[in-house]
């Protein structure tokens, strides 16, 4: 674990130095090339804003109205089929939609049930094992102007569903429930 932690700390400086060294080696005017590339960053960010506004507003409305709670309530019979603890179910729905809201939910569940309880370990594992799908899609597709995402969302949600089931299973297998 210590090795990985150290690697994480030195990764960014190492990348900086490696890239600069490669530039110097190839006799590149590093500063000029850097500035030229940095300009590209501005236009990319500007292109993200509209899709991110659209997405976050829809998520905000859906959550604040209580519609998400309804969805979770409707899905609770399904959860028992897959052995998902009912306390972890809201997170399964929230995780793909909103990163900050899921983190708040995880903190809350951990506070109530304790971090070293079965529920606490399951929600921790669920939180750590996937990304916020809707945010990732909005940002990456928005940046290049893709309108038809084809099967991407379906594939991402399938993977997400498997990670939820895997989280419950592996926590039970490793820590016991």
């Amino acid at each position: 674990m210590e090795i990985i932690k150290t690697l994480s700390i030195y990764a960014v400086p190492a990348i900086f130095l490696a890239i600069l060294a490669a530039g110097v080696y190839k006799d590149i005017k590093v500063y000029d090339v850097f500035v030229e590339g940095a300009k590209e960053g501005i236009s990319t960010i500007i292109r993200i804003i509209p899709s991110l506004v659209g997405l976050l507003v829809a998520v905000g409305v859906f959550r604040a109205s209580g519609a998400l709670d309804l969805l979770i309530y409707a899905a609770s019979p399904l959860a028992s089929i897959f052995n998902i603890p009912s306390e972890a179910l809201p997170l399964a729905f929230l995780r793909p939609i909103s990163g900050s809201a899921s983190l708040a939910l995880v903190s809350d569940v951990i506070k109530v049930h304790g971090p070293d309880s079965f529920i606490g370990r399951v929600v921790s594992t669920m939180m750590g094992s996937t990304e916020t799908i809707f945010y990732t899609l909005a940002v990456y597709f928005g940046a290049v102007g893709i309108k038809n995402v084809r099967y991407t969302l379906a594939a991402a949600l399938i993977a997400d569903f498997v990670s939820v089931i895997a989280s419950v299973w592996i926590c039970g297998a490793v820590f016991g429930s």
């Binding site: 890239i19 530039g23 590339g37």
Partner: peptide
């Protein structure tokens, strides 16, 4: 993106 430009141009 600036750093990546250097990384790209340098191969």
């Amino acid at each position: 993106t600036g750093l990546m430009n250097i990384a790209e141009k340098s191969g």
